[in-house]
Amino acid sequence: MTPFERAAPGRAPRILGPVLVAMLAGLHACGPEGSEPAQVLLPVTAGPDGIQPCVNNLGWAITLTQARVALADLEFTIEGETHAALRPTSPRRPAPWRGLADLLVPTAIAHPGHQAGGQVTGSLDGAFLVDVIDGSTLGTATLLEGDYHGMNLAFRTAGPADGLEADDPLIGHTAFLAGTAWRDGIDIAFTAVLDVAPGTMMVGGPFDMKVRPGMDAALVLTLYTIDPSEGDTLFDGLDFGALDTDGDGSIAIAPGPPAHNVLAKTLIRHDHWGIAVHQDPDKEAP
């Protein structure tokens, strides 16, 4: 008699008992489990990719020679399933028909910060003193697999813990910039010490990258002197000539006067921050 044959009329087959026991045991054994998306580790540095001479809206040609900023906690965001109508338009995407279309219906060119912001699925936590001219190594970011379109960061105040010399002008402040401005034959050397309230977030800097397991790439935190989307500059609104009240050809912008506030407000905008991706085409994601 096989286990499936009835032993006698009206009696359950022998297999029934073990099956029931196995089912109940199986139900009990069903413990909570989850499957997390793959995590990808990518190195993050800061570099001069976005530093270039620029002419601000008042006609001053500016060359930046120093730029150090105290930052914290980088976040990387995916747009997820944000509706296409709300999704930012990539300024780099060629669109030959856009010229005509924009004449009819002007399109607002937007970073993620204009409408998205996105969901944070990657980060590099910590406090960083970033030198965007000479370059800095920030660390290794952890990102979940996904299509990234934006990044956020926080500003903070630099201090001795950042390894600064006691007389470093950045101590107690957020950013230090230095460079030259030229217009109509007038050269002005400038420095700027900027204060940003600690914890202030820059949200929505562009970061376009498909992150996949096994890929080999480096992320470069970039300060753009020229907004790659809209063409405005980091120094718009600054009349260097007017700031050089003593006419000695040098100015020092410090916290307090309007020039500081103009520059600080521009510095924290998403227009001037982003992530450049350095990727070996031969080592793209499998």
Binding site: L86, G113, Q115, M201, V203, G204, H270
Partner: peptide
């Protein structure tokens, strides 16, 4: 739409 910058999506609570 498009009138707010430098804000996370939480600004848009409630959707459109």
């Amino acid at each position: 739409r498009g009138s707010v910058e430098d804000a996370t999506l939480s600004t848009y609570r409630g959707g459109r």
